[in-house]
Nucleic acid binder design. Structure first.
Length: 115
RNA sequence: CAACCGGGCCGGACAGCCGCGCGCCGCAGCCGAAAGGCGCGUCGUGAGGAAAGUCCGGGCUCCACAGGGCAAGGAUAACGGGUAACGCCCGCCGAAGGCAACUUCAGGAAAAGUGCAACAGAGAGAUACCGCCCGCGCGAGCGGGUAAGGGUGGAAACGUGAGGUAAGAGCUCACGCACCGGCUGGAGACAGUCCGGCGCUGUAAACUCUAUCCGGAGCAACACCGUGGGGGAGACAAUGGCUGGCCCGGCCGUCUCCGGGAGGUGGCAUGGAGCGGACCGGCAACGGUUCCGCCAAGAUAGAUGGCUGUCCAAGACAGAACCCGGCUUACAGACCCGAUUGUAUC
């Protein structure tokens, strides 16, 4: 990924859940907050409720792929945490991308369209 | 051909584009004095038969290791072998099931002792309800004998037949059964048309007894480098604490709360009780190591995904986390080998 680092510190996750902006979609829940860094940091949460390890892996990979394909459209300097919901395991991929972009638009994460 | 039984093997494939972990090599790219790091590119490689449950057995690591004794707890349970070891595997015995191939087994001891045996039933190692027989009584009944018959029950005085008797009873006999001792066979569990004794219910998945084994915790172990801190408050001063049960012995100021803190490297992967084939030994598990092949994930918010197309039997269960040997559980289906039974044909 071009400008995104993994987010691994547990206290950052908790801070985002507590103070970050959020948007709920049918595939995922997105939390975000400015981080004061030049790039973004991405964290993916796949809870035990989703199923066994295979299901959780699959959800995480599909979410990472959605993020990767649409990374160029996002603003920089944000921490983003994406929480998987059960449809992110085997829902339609194009619907999932559309839903994610809509959520990002709500949160003001999308870059201004260059006209 | 069908049904069934046992074993083995595989568990979507191929192509294109984009993307990821690791390794090697390259680079007139960036940082650095250098070592090296970052970036980019080529090539290679990249989850399972159960990776799972964490149920057993080990390796490895630390703790306790100056020990000694006792107790407790846990595990296993026919016999012989295999193995580093096992509660695993193979063979075999016994029991149960199946026409059979074959499958299943918490398979030591009830004559060391204690307990329990609900309901039913007269009675559960202690018994006479009905019945049968004898005696007494006019009679209802009473006293005694009796386990052959009835009924109850998972289980009722070893079973069947004959003799015997007042009626009966292993009381006696024949055959059988169970147990104990001998003899014969077998390496042994065990088996036997043999001989003698004996006739004593079940339950140990009740306590218990017998034999064998077991120190504890785990890679978030542990080692090294680095960072922060080396502090404050309180309690008890031996009649205390530690030596994860107790005693002897040994050691020591101890304990609780609050505050501060940053992580990295090794362990860790070209391995090892390794896998496959041939040969030799063995019924087999397995061993020999003689020969020939095969082994290449190693993350640490945790690498396999997305899209498109083709094919088919239409993709199940499911993701390595220190490493091995097993067990158990989950699983759409595909293929191969062998055996049994039935049917048809020769």
């Amino acid at each position: 990924m071009e400008f995104t680092a993994p987010l691994k510190l547990n206290h950052v996750f908790r801070k985002l859940y507590a103070k970050g902006e959020s948007a709920v979609g049918s595939f995922v829940v997105v939390y975000c907050r400015r981080n004061g860094l030049p790039g973004n940091r991405l964290g993916i949460t796949t809870g035990l409720k989703l199923g066994n390890a295979v299901c959780r892996n699959r959800a995480r990979r599909r979410i990472r792929e959605v993020y990767r394909l649409n990374e160029a459209k996002l603003r920089r300097g944000w921490d983003v945490v994406i929480v998987a919901r059960s449809r992110s395991i085997d829902g339609d991929f194009r619907d999932m991308q559309r839903s994610f972009l809509h959520q990002c638009g709500k949160l003001g994460l999308l870059r201004e369209e260059k006209s």
